[in-house]
Design a protein around this nucleic acid. Sequence first.
DNA 1: TCTGGGGTCCTTTCACCC
DNA 2: TCTGGGGTGAAAGGACCC
Length: 409
Amino acid sequence: MTEPVDDTGCHILHVDMDAFYASVELRDRPDLAGLPVIVGGLSGRSVVLSATYAARAFGVRSAMPMSRARRLCPQATVIPPRHRLYGAVSKEVMGIFRAVTPLVEPISLDEAFLDVSGAIRLFGSPSVIGHLIRAQVAEQQQITCSVGIAANKFLAKLASVHCKPDGLLVIPVGQAMSFLSPLPVSALWGVGEKTRQALARLGLRTVADIAAAPLAALERDLGPATATHLHALAHGRDARPVESSVRDKSVGAEETFEVDISDAATVRRELLRLSRRTARALRTGGLAARTITIKLRKSDFTTITRAKTLPEPTGETQQIYATACALYAASGLSGQVSLRLVGVRAAGLVPAADAATQLALGERSTAWRDAESALDRITGRFGQDAVRPAALIDPRGRAGTRAELGRES
DNA sequence: TCTGGGGTCCTTTCACCC
DNA sequence: TCTGGGGTGAAAGGACCC
């Protein structure tokens, strides 16, 4: 047994699956246990989604280009991702959390915050609950997770990072500052490469440096919001509650081509495909959107976005697609510039029911909505390629672009 | 080394209204 | 009538996170 730790006042848990996608794949491939395994696309422009610790030992990291990962670790087994499977496992794992407390805030498929203050009388101290969760996840899903326990979200997340993989760590209330102080500024939530450089120019390299810096000096160089945020975190303060019902602010879809494209007709065809995916996501969530944004990334990786806010919220492919095409035409990039990525996003989300009531005279929209709902039912049953607009049918009889083929498996 | 796809949030700029 | 300023919403870009 481990030493008893004082977890008084530490009612926030951060649970993080270890190498989640790769661990799920290893359940089906026990022969690969202990070996370097990388989950990622097979096409030239894909990146590492997940890597086993054996692969990480070679320097492989998630988000790294696959080409580089394979150079670092040529002996690794590469497995294409199966997102539906990970989603299903995630649902099961979140179910384990919710059996302990209703206050579960999923951050992604593989991690969540839990507020266990109401569960202590029933299950025991936060550490006991952490051990219980780890045991249940291992037993029911045959994967490991790490649990960080502290007085707030930020510290709980730091704790789980520091006990990974397959660990549990409590940061007692009185030890937060001694834990935090020596860490590099990049340990703070919101400090990426750019902010790290900005802080370095101010001579700030550790969390202790930021905690000691005058707030006004930080505000001058980072802006008031970032400065206040970082200053609080550096003192171990984080008042954000665990929220079990966070509403999405936007939904969208984007796609990187295997080869850059400049032909306007091809780009529009891609916009149609992405508009369909976006509209379907809206309808699945019972939502409609007021603002449509397109994203165009050029060969040199510079990215522009163009947005339009509609008079009424919509969830229809036709309207989203028409707006996306208009934005593309107005961008000045249509047919002129080579693009490596296009995207469509819908924001300003409202419940679809509210949006429907705003359609005063029941124009053609209801007909489109009914037709698209019917299509949703068909694709839900028979797969996404069961029904497609004529524009998306490849004359050579193949389905979809190379990029899309690469993802489906 | 050559950069995915899903998002959130912040800052700046601009137009518009009062 | 002209000008300035505050407030607000939209648009655009960018940093960041998983």
